[in-house]
């Protein structure tokens, strides 16, 4: 797919993806709103600028791989895939409904989804296996994987991190959606992760810390991560949960609920306002 390099265009796309997320979650009546909105910029950067991929040929052998380890933010993945052209946008309104290709957590019914995820820690473990497998076969495909910050309280994530560094998987970038929030509250109150950058460095990763809602920083960090040799990269992306809708920003209550009709209408108005400004 042709790269979109114009930052303004990417930001506009991210805004449209946010609108899609709100619409699909209102229609679904359940789902994870906060993290989906918070990562719309990263997902836009990946699918419209960074990844080598072809929405018409999801199984293209030379593609880069993306694994959404924090599978609960499936709405942002689906909205991004639809906008990139993997399937018609009207499918988005079937999210979480019986018979849909858009399951509550991603699986391969949906074109463009590589692996089923949703049990936390497993996607990053899938990704290290994928990256190792590509290396064994001398393939150049690159692997990007997103993890939630709360997600890496799982021991499995650290097993996978150890594996990635041990095998010098420099064909792997793990992007951490660092919004400091999980269901029970602030990550540092629930189970402290800090000093996270230092921990990842100690685990053998090249660490890049960015504002994950700044398109320029996101694109630059992801592109830079491809050039790191003999180490996997950890992009510590500081994001705002619920980004783009003032009432929902930085509120853990919005981790796992969907907006009702009224809330959705208000949010869409705000997002459309940003589009015009």
């Amino acid at each position: 797919m042709e790269k979109v390099c114009n930052l303004g265009k990417l930001e506009k796309t991210a805004n449209l993806i946010r609108q899609d997320i709100v619409k699909m979650l209102v229609e679904a009546g359940s789902g994870h709103t906060g993290g989906s909105l918070g990562t719309a910029d990263i997902m836009t950067a990946l699918y419209f600028n960074v990844l080598k991929h072809d929405p018409k040929k999801p199984a293209w052998k030379d593609r880069d791989y993306f694994v959404l380890s924090n599978g609960h933010i499936a709405p942002v993945l689906f909205a991004t895939l639809a906008r990139a052209g993997y399937f018609p946008s009207k499918e988005l309104m079937t999210l979480r409904k019986l018979g849909t290709i858009l399951q509550g957590h991603p699986n391969t019914y949906c074109p463009g989804v590589e692996l089923p995820t949703g049990s936390l820690g497993q996607g990053v473990s899938n990704a290290v296996g994928l990256a190792k497998g590509l290396k064994i076969q001398d393939k150049d495909n690159y692997v990007f994987c997103m993890v939630g910050d709360g997600e890496i309280e799982e021991g499995l994530a650290w097993e996978a991190f150890m594996f990635a560094a041990h095998f010098e998987l420099d064909n792997l970038t793990v992007i951490c959606d660092r919004n400091f929030l999980q269901i029970d509250g602030d990550t540092e109150d629930v189970m402290a992760l800090e000093p996270l950058a230092d921990k990842m460095k100690a685990f053998g990763f090249h660490v890049i810390e960015i504002d994950g809602n700044n398109m320029h920083e996101v694109v630059e960090a992801l592109e830079r991560s491809r050039k790191i040799h003999s180490k996997p990269t950890f992009v510590l992306a500081n994001t705002v949960m619920g980004k783009g809708v003032c009432d929902w920003e930085n509120d853990a209550a919005w981790h796992g609920i969907a907006p009702d009709q009224e809330q959705g209408k208000k949010a869409l108005k705000e997002l459309m306002g940003r589009e015009r400004s």
Partner: peptide, 23 residues
């Protein structure tokens, strides 16, 4: 041959990744 060390959980999920890569 891939030695994972004492990581049965990672071995299982990573094996799925290896299979997905064509192995």
């Amino acid at each position: 041959f891939i030695e994972t060390g004492i990581q049965e959980q990672n071995m299982m999920s990573a094996s799925a990744g290896l299979a997905h890569s064509g192995l």
